[in-house]
Write a protein that binds this DNA or RNA. Structure first.
Length: 418
RNA sequence: GUGAGCGUAGCUCAGCUGGUCAGAGCACCGGACUGUGGAUCCGGGGGUCGUGGGUUCAAGUCCCAUCGCUCACCCCA
């Protein structure tokens, strides 16, 4: 058995994944993004500092191990910290700014698996580094939205908020603590813990008890606490989205789970894929590079989950076209013809996709097998053909048939298939 | 980490209140079928009934434990 929360990818499922990544590649590279593949493990520090020691990811969801030298390494739980590490390491700050990067690959989190959540899952990440311009925030949202639109998804919901600058957030958390501490006992167990660690997350609680209390106390949204600059930044992002006709909802309760976010936060949801409805999310993280020991490099980006997008496509009834079969399926009609089929297949490869039966077949059976495989042509090799070094080719779509020297088969098939 | 549901053939599942209960369909292989269309008919291989204990004359069937899967919570992709 594959270990808990992991799975083997093949067949239709693999093709769908590859299609999703290929579509994202097209959209992101059209915007000038450079593909990057970082290692799937990093020094644990990269994530502890970059993602934040207080986050759930670092506290309980990382696969961490020691190498033989006693260094602590971690399977990457997300992509942004690693991509910023790469940006710093390769001196991309001297490239023309901003630098747009994208990456597709596996991520690892030690959570209990459920629908749309796996321990090894796949993300497409995009980051624009080196500018604070709200144009790049709007562009990131647009690129995420377009990637999903290009795949054919329709029922998308973009949620937008701002978590403000660090000082705004500090003021807001202080406000929440002051407001809620007297009612600590009325909160759910989870939210009591949130009150200590990150009061903003209480807004996101799914507990009815919590939501009723918040309602009753008339809690003010984070957006009320935005400073002058963060407010202007959000307004600019909204204006750009409006001009691009990207529908969005302001979602004051939207809270990012990672410490490095400032200002813009967004998610794209799809209603029909179960409890884990977020296809992707992202935001701005101007302080991240400093946490990793570099100079200040502002950035904004997103990630979306390939498995979740695949679920959403299935929910919308998306169907992949059938797998393309071989160009030619060779059918040996006699024992001696099996080897001849192998030799002829090798002669035609790799220009053509050629398969053959390993045991002699009766013609009817052979045609049946060729059809099952979705072959364009069936090729018969019987005693007659062996004697004359010929092969009988049958175009399965029309039934028309021709017998010709094996030496001419390649040319014939190439022009017939063109 | 918490809760609920579920583990019988490669896949989808049947198997009532314990007594031919080791089954079906699909898939795979072969035959009917001497050189031509995914069909049909017939046959075949394949399962320690997740695992370990227990109750019983008798356990896929009941009890306990354990492992796994699924969904949900937490949080997120």
């Amino acid at each position: 058995m594959a270990v808990r929360g992991t799975k083997d990818l093949f067949g239709k499922e693999l093709r769908l994944h590859q299609h999703i990544v290929a579509t994202a590649r097209r959209v992101l590279e059209a915007a000038g993004a450079l593909e990057l593949i970082t290692p799937i493990f990093e020094e644990t520090q990269v994530f502890e500092k970059g993602v934040g020691a207080a986050t759930d990811i670092v506290r309980k969801e990382m696969f961490t191990f020691q190498d033989r030298g006693g260094r602590s390494l971690t399977l990457r739980p997300e992509g942004t910290a690693a991509m910023v590490r790469a940006y710093l390491e390769h001196g991309m700050k001297v490239w023309p700014q901003p630098v747009r990067l994208w990456m597709a690959g596996p991520m690892f989190r030690a959570e209990r698996p459920q629908k749309g959540r796996y321990r090894q899952f796949h993300q497409v990440n995009y980051e624009a580094l080196g500018s604070e311009s709200p144009i790049l925030d709007a562009e990131a949202i647009a690129l995420l939205y377009e990637s999903l639109k290009e795949l054919g998804l329709r029922r998308l919901v973009v949620k937008l908020s701002s978590v403000g600058d660090p000082e705004d957030r500090a003021r807001y958390n202080a406000y929440l603590r002051e407001l809620l501490s007297p009612h600590r006992e009325a909160l759910s167990e989870d939210s009591k813990e949130r009150l200590e660690l990150n009061p903003m997350r209480i807004l996101d609680s799914k507990s009815e008890k919590d939501q009723a209390l918040l309602q009753e106390l008339g809690v003010r949204p984070m957006l009320d606490f935005l400073g002058e600059e963060a407010r202007a930044h959000l307004k600019a992002v909204e204006r750009h989205l409006g001009r691009l006709s990207i529908p969005y909802e302001l979602e004051p309760a939207l809270v990012r789970g990672l410490d490095y976010y400032v200002r813009t936060a967004f998610e794209v949801h799809h209603a029909e894929i179960g409890a884990q409805s977020a296809l992707g999310g992202g935001g701005r993280y101007d302080g991240l590079s400093e946490l990793l020991g570099g100079p200040r490099v502002p950035g904004v980006g997103f990630a979306f989950g390939v498995e979740r997008v695949a679920l959403a496509l299935e929910a919308e009834g998306y169907g992949l076209s059938e797998e393309r079969g071989p160009d030619l399926y060779l059918i040996p009609l006699a024992e001696e013809a099996v080897e001849a089929a192998f030799y002829l297949a090798e002669r035609l490869r790799p220009r053509l996709r050629v398969e053959y039966a390993l045991t002699p077949k009766k013609p009817g059976k052979g045609v049946e097998e060729a059809l099952k495989r979705g072959a364009a042509f069936a090729g018969f090799l019987g005693e007659d053909e062996l004697r004359t070094e010929e092969v009988t080719l049958k175009r399965l779509a029309t039934g028309e048939q021709v017998r010709l020297p094996q030496a001419e088969a390649l040319g014939f098939l190439l022009s017939a298939l063109a």
